[in-house]
Design a protein around this nucleic acid. Structure first.
Lengths: 222, 222
DNA sequence: TTGCATTTCAAACACTTGTATGAAACTATC
DNA sequence: GATAGTTTCATACAAGTGTTTGAAATGCAA
């Protein structure tokens, strides 16, 4: 197996290039040029371009998932097997937001790569994301333990909306900055996490009574 | 200008193919085959592949934006120049959700195309989306009129989260269905709109007092 | 009909892409 | 130090891409 030098040179060059320029216009030739290795090395070490991308994404997303589950476990243990709903949401969106937002995203290629992976949608990554359901189910289970009374569907919608806010903030961070003319501070990661968690909790807590048809005002029937 | 038959045949064939199979693996040759026209016709009538995609997307998104603004205007007129915040959110997310969700998404190629455009991210479409800021500013202005007291940043976050929930629901409808094992009814479009609007309103109404640092529980300093 | 502009067509062009090949260089074991 | 296995290398391959070309067909006005 020798030194693995070539292999890791490809991985880091690829991650950096994909992070900077997106999956769309980075070719294997770009990667091997940046890594100073031979073109054939990619297929030798990874089998194919898609498997290279998959390995990059799997590595990073496993790390995020591990971090999420650690936070969840800590919160559940602190609460005697039952975590507060806010702590659950915090464990869900915190690691992702911390990884992809804030000043880190200028420095960490890993974070910038994950942003790319969330903006562009390329087949090998999509395949992996589809297998993420099992991971999310663990959070659904924790929510069920935390809020035994709530309707199942409400829990899933809460989970879904929390992820929506987190991911959309990552995806559209530039547009939000431009739209708000800098008023929304995208560098205050902790503040953003607080905001997302707060809204998620409210969505779950507030929708309780009017769960079925939460209409606030009469609306025209159109 | 003759009959324009070729031109519109290309447009509708392209929209259908992109909707069904995504931008990634539909070539011009696929499109002209489906449209029964010559390969060169695309470049003759549209200039390039990207301009074809852009025209498709612009047409559909102009229609959605028009619908949004109509609803907004109606709501403001009904309220004497000041719409309720829930009506504003409804005007913002309603047209998109109605267009892309529900049974229509099996029938309407337009809706399926817009879903694709929101899932895959292809350069010509991204360029257009970036110009959408002006449109969103009109909603920010309406929100300002509706809630004169609120901090500007809060309004933008509210707008942002509302769009987050709507778009994420469209993007991840399949995953949400699978995750919730069918408990979340993605065909009840009106119910989904109500849900998104309710949460958006709550996010804006609830965050008022603790706007700056909405922490619900003590969190470890990590 | 004649002439002119628009539109269609088949074919080729130019280029990029990921992948395969087979020889060469290297490394470690005996 | 010979040998077997691993890794690197230059190069070629095959396929697919959007685009261009120049001629043929078509439509329309005078």
């Amino acid at each position: 197996m020798a030194s693995d030098h070539t292999r890791s040179a490809i991985l880091s060059a690829a991650e950096r290039l994909y992070a900077d320029r997106g999956f769309g216009d980075v070719t294997l030739r770009d990667i091997v040029a940046a890594a100073n290795v031979n073109l054939a090395a990619v297929n030798y070490h990874f089998g194919s371009k898609d498997e290279l991308i998959a390995e990059l994404f799997v590595t990073r997303s496993l790390a995020t998932n591990r971090e999420r589950l650690n936070e969840l476990k800590a919160a559940e243990e602190a609460g005697g097997g039952r975590a507060g709903i806010d702590a659950i949401f915090r464990a869900l969106v915190g690691p992702t937001l911390r990884g992809c937002l804030g000043p880190s995203s200028e420095g960490s290629t890993a974070a910038r790569f994950m942003i790319r992976a969330s903006i562009e949608s390329v087949p090998p990554i999509r395949r992996i994301k589809n297998r993420e359901v099992d991971h999310l189910r663990k959070f659904a289970a924790a929510m069920r333990r935390s809020l035994p009374g709530r309707a199942e569907a409400d829990l899933y919608w809460g989970l879904h909306f929390a992820l929506a806010m987190a991911h959309h903030t990552i995806r559209e961070r530039e547009r939000l900055t431009k739209l708000s003319e800098g008023l929304c501070d995208l560098d205050d990661v902790q503040g953003i996490i607080d905001r997302v968690v707060a809204v998620s909790v409210m969505a779950l807590a507030g929708g309780e009574t009017k769960a079925k048809a939460p209409r606030l005002v009469a609306r025209d029937g159109r």
